[in-house]
Write a protein that binds this DNA or RNA. Structure first.
Lengths: 141, 141
DNA sequence: CTTGAACCTGTAGTTACTACAGGGAGTACA
DNA sequence: TGTACTCCCTGTAGTAACTACAGGTTCAAG
């Protein structure tokens, strides 16, 4: 490991695009392992650390939660993970993403519907307000 | 206002389906106005209060944020709101819901894609892990 | 040798709640 | 009248996933 491959937190933040504080946060919660330090306490990140942060950031972009990423990383760390375990975790996450899309799509339809019934303009009668007060058409309760 | 129309917090929670503590929370942050109290300090909610909570809960179900609900309620409270203002607020919210759906749909495609490339089973090679480490096919960086 | 950037630590703020601890009030029953 | 039990009161802490700040070292350049 040559010295040039080892970088400090600011440089890691710049290279990875991750917020400086977030890197420390990931260490605090155990996603990143505590890196080596200089004599005066500055963190030194190896290429391995950098790859691990990349893993975390890509996982985050895919919407994995911290807990899911911990599971994924502990599988990787165990060195005897199976592809099947990883796929199960991914498919569970995929299912929750699909559930969220379904929820939001229902919401979208309702909102578009209620907005379409609204004429806009300067009048004080508003079907949206009526809906929210439960006195619109098709109101339940 | 007859006494039977005025209810306490527990009853309001039961009738509205809202969590007991959430009612107090909505008062603390200014969504619900502080209700009348008995001599000993118990809150008494009028039908007007009950309608306002209903408004808030329906708005919440439509995905409006607390801040958006505050805006909506202050329009209603002003008694000279226009339908146009309400519709603008709704359409902004609708746009953000659509943006979320678009984000999640992209996510869903990527996840489905990467999961499909995964054979599962007991092997230690996994395209999902490879992707997360940035060494899968089509990896950027 | 001094300035300024970068680093260190712990802690507080964000959203929208939910839950709990520790106490006072209201009501039913013996 | 006592007491048991539920309800209500308050303030505070916890959740997810960060982000930001204050107050204090350390490093690197001129």
């Amino acid at each position: 490991m040559t010295a040039s491959q080892v970088i400090k937190r600011g440089e890691l933040a710049r290279r990875s695009g991750c917020n400086l504080e977030t890197i420390r946060y990931y260490e605090n919660i155990g996603l990143l392992q505590p890196p080596e330090r200089t004599a005066s306490g500055h963190r030194l990140y190896t290429p391995g650390d950098q790859a691990r942060l990349g893993f975390i950031l890509r996982g985050r972009d895919l919407g994995f939660s911290i807990e899911e990423l911990k599971s994924l990383l502990s599988l990787v760390d165990s060195h005897h993970y199976s592809c099947g375990e990883v796929r199960d975790l991914t498919n569970n996450h995929l299912a929750s993403v699909r559930a969220k899309i379904a929820d939001l799509t229902r919401l979208e339809r309702t909102l578009a519907d209620v907005s379409a019934r609204c004429e806009g303009g300067d009048v004080p009668e508003c079907p949206i307000i009526d809906t929210l007060f439960g006195r619109g058409p098709g109101a339940r309760s």
